[in-house]
Amino acid sequence: MSAAPSLPVRALAALGRPVVAAARATLELWGVLIGTLAGIIRSYGKGGRRPRGAVLAQMYAIGNRSLVFVAVTLGFIGMVMMYQACLQFSRAIGDLSQVGLQFLRLVVSDFGPTLTAMMLATRVGAGIAAEIGSMKVTEQLDALRMSGVLPIDYLLVPRFLASIVMTVALTILGAAIMYGAGGLTAWLSFGVNPRTFFDPAMVQPRHLALGLIKAVTYGAAIPIVSGFCGLRARGSSEGVGWATTAAVVGSSFAVIALDFALSVGALWLFGGDL
């Protein structure tokens, strides 16, 4: 009889609204990924128009922005992790000869790519969302469309390709610095012989493969999530700020979730041999 909906109906509606919003956002996110992949084919397929030098310019921008940042943060965290690992090993086993091997395995197959990508999610992700978001709110994306240019092809495709290449490159650098800083800590604070620590023969191809797969996946995920956040920006400076914030959290979380999925997959594949 009454016009107002009953309590369960209202509760369902309150629960349903965020679910519907999340489902729509997920759909849009996939749309951005598929649009970008299609954009690569459009731009680099037969007769495609690719903006000249755009990928190189983006690679330079990412490298220039993040080189020192990644080097400093990964160096410090390498020292800290080694320090904590040595403390734990000396308490648990009382023998530090295994520490280098375990550290190398972790740096190559997980910490190197994942922590580098966490830093890039902050640096590169926020940058992409801020750029594309402010172009969206100042109608520059509409202006591109009026000139027959798809914003995803023109803006996101070069960033996507550049991000994959640079994430791999910076991961190699970050992992090397992390490992070097860790070795230095083990030597100076715990007297671990650098010769037993730095033994390149200990690197297993499957660790390298796993690390590489992770770096490529993160490198692809960060611009997609951030570009999606930038393209959703509305309003003025609040909208751009919101998009940038969402990009940092979204791409950081994407890195952690992908890390988990890939690590569990690798463990399932290799078991105790990993």
Binding site: S237, V240, G241, A243, T244
Partner: peptide, 11 residues
């Protein structure tokens, strides 16, 4: 510097 500045500051 406006909307662009806010994005840059967050970064």
């Amino acid at each position: 510097g406006g909307a662009v500045g806010v994005g840059r500051a967050v970064n």
